[in-house]
Design a protein around this nucleic acid. Sequence first.
DNA 1: CTCGGCAGAATTTTT
DNA 2: TTCTGCCGAG
Length: 764
Amino acid sequence: MVNAIASKPQAVYIKNMDSHLTALNPMQRKAVEQLDGPVLVLAGAGTGKTRVLTARLAHLLISGKATPHQILAVTFTNKAAGEMRERVAKYVGSPVEGWWIGTFHSIAARILRRHAPLLDLKPTFTILGDDDQERLLKQIMQGRDIDTKKTPPRMVVDTISRWKDRVMTPGDLGPGDASDIADGKMREIYREYQERLKTLNACDFGDLILHCITLLRNQPDILAQYQRHFRYILVDEYQDTNLAQYLWLRLLAQGHQNICCVGDDDQSIYGWRGAEVGNILRFEEDYPGAEVIRLEENYRSTGHILGAASGLIAHNRGRLGKTLWAASHQDGEKIAVMSLWRGDEEVRFIADEMEKRRRTGDPWSRMAILLRTGYQTRAFEEHFLSRGIPHRVIGGMRFFERQEIRDAIAYLRVIAQPDDDMALLRIINLPKRGLGNTTVDDILQAARSSGQSLTQAIARLLGTDALRPKVKTTLASLMDDFARWRQLGAETTHLRLAETVLEESGYLAMWRAEKSPEAQGRLENLRELVSGAMAEFEDLPAFLEHVSLVMDTESRKGEDAASIMTLHGAKGLEFDTVFLPGWEEGLFPGQRTLDENGSAGLEEERRLAYVGITRARKRAFISHAGERYLFGSLTTPLPSRFLAELPEEHVSRKMSSFSPPRFGGYGERQKPEKPAQPKWSREWRERQNAAPAERPPAPKTISLRESEGGFGLGERVFHQKFGYGKVIGMDHDRLDISFEHAGRKKVLDSFVIPADEVGEGMFT
DNA sequence: CTCGGCAGAATTTTT
DNA sequence: TTCTGCCGAG
């Protein structure tokens, strides 16, 4: 049985026996060399965490304490796992295939497949993505007459996932749990959901860990095998583990307790999806005698950046406490805190600043805009597009989550696993075949009452008169198609198969027929799926397993482009120049977080701010606007409280001198005059005055244009809407301007500024 | 069954 | 503002 766990033993050739220890600082070296017993490595941002992790792995091998197969190394993301594999491969001459380096979920799935029958599953069980989960739950809810409008299935999915994170089965729920959701029927829904999963021979992501725990708890002999087998355990991003993952690790580490967890409590930003900072805070209690090693020497950022970040995070309670210090003795530039009048001005300011940096030789790829929410990206994207700034929006819709990709995969799933009902349901009427809700419900009904899968039920119904003739013909032909494709799959490559299926099913034709601009992109994605993603795998089953676990593909990299992404997406990355816009109350910290999670939520937001600042190597710009269009209406947010928490000695606060327009804009309906100072300016000042002495002074408005009419004939000016132009006439406060692109217009002088004040001149 | 129109909502995200 | 999902009409 133990041999079943390990794949075939391989010889390990070590390159450069000691190279993994050179160039480590004393603390890093300790973290690498302390191999036995529980170790917690508190690795602050930029302190060389990955390097320690891989060096430690190499050290285990070199010291002869373990063979590759006896080490379990767990990460959260495939990206992190991939990087670890890659780095380890540099130390070791053999390929790292078959090693136990992977994500929690992929390793759990691997264990689970070996013992599936013990959990009432077939080893071929499918892993449901969240859209499958959502559709399944929606079905269940509708079957129980629960209004899916009042209770969005998404919410139910999340609720169940959170329960699974906390290892709660339907039986563990008290009557009070989530009684406010779904008419208080959550417990029954959850129970039915689990039953349906079993029937479907499927697991969701939570189940992978949960079933594993059940297995290890109920089968002491199997647990003992794994405990013996994994002599050393390494865990990355420990602060992100949830209760289930924590227990899973505990089970495996019991006994030898050779577990090394690396993490940073200050970078715990996934509480909302079940991560328990408590796991890392409690480590020493959980593993008595644990060695705690702090990595505090930061190799990434300048002194000012670290000072500002440290000062901010110091406002959090309940942290283990670390003091980052800069390895370089350079303080660098202070963090620039920018107060701007309007959201669009903020966008323009950042674009200006980026272009300026670009002109001095900084590549775009070393600049990033980090945002609290996804929808904030749009404004930047649009502006960058119009200005020709190369950029990349990271995050967004991932490749395997795209509709067309999931559809195509559903076809392949039905071919590989005829009983995969979720997949069949997805494409049964796609492209439209006249198999609508009524028909599908009938079939579902029939399948459920006979305990068969959909495919089986359809086969049976085709032999009866239960179906309308038209429907019967359609279904028969669809089933014939699948039978033919399965046959084809045995004869040709999975790539060829995929092409044929997409073509013959009419799926490609469906998109070709659509005239929308996206349709073209969808076809390209499908081509990419076959020639790119699928081509990397041996056969269809291998590809499908990968797909169910991995929702990520590397989009084209290597091109020089600035990054636009959420703060969450930026964790683990670094850039020379980082822009952090939108630091406004309600947005960052987000209103909803505050409402729902109170001070714990606030602290997590603050950690997010900390993560953002510490992404910067050389400089950071933090900004907020006094007015911002949000969902179509104008808001006047206050500056984020985090701005006031930044230590004064590490920031320089600047304010836009661009006079706020008193009207909506040229040619538009005139709005009533605004107060001389925006709301945020006054209230912020009040807050500053009320605050203790160490609070920063209120930002000063220095050079609001003294008076109107300061323009001269022939002067080059800039207008927010019309761009650059030359003054060719004046009449009191009205200027006659010939714009370079917009032509000749008459505008109020308060709408334009001298062209040379655009960009750097905009601030004092 | 399909399509068009309208109402309502709109963090953060991995596996 | 923009997207989604639902309902009603054909």
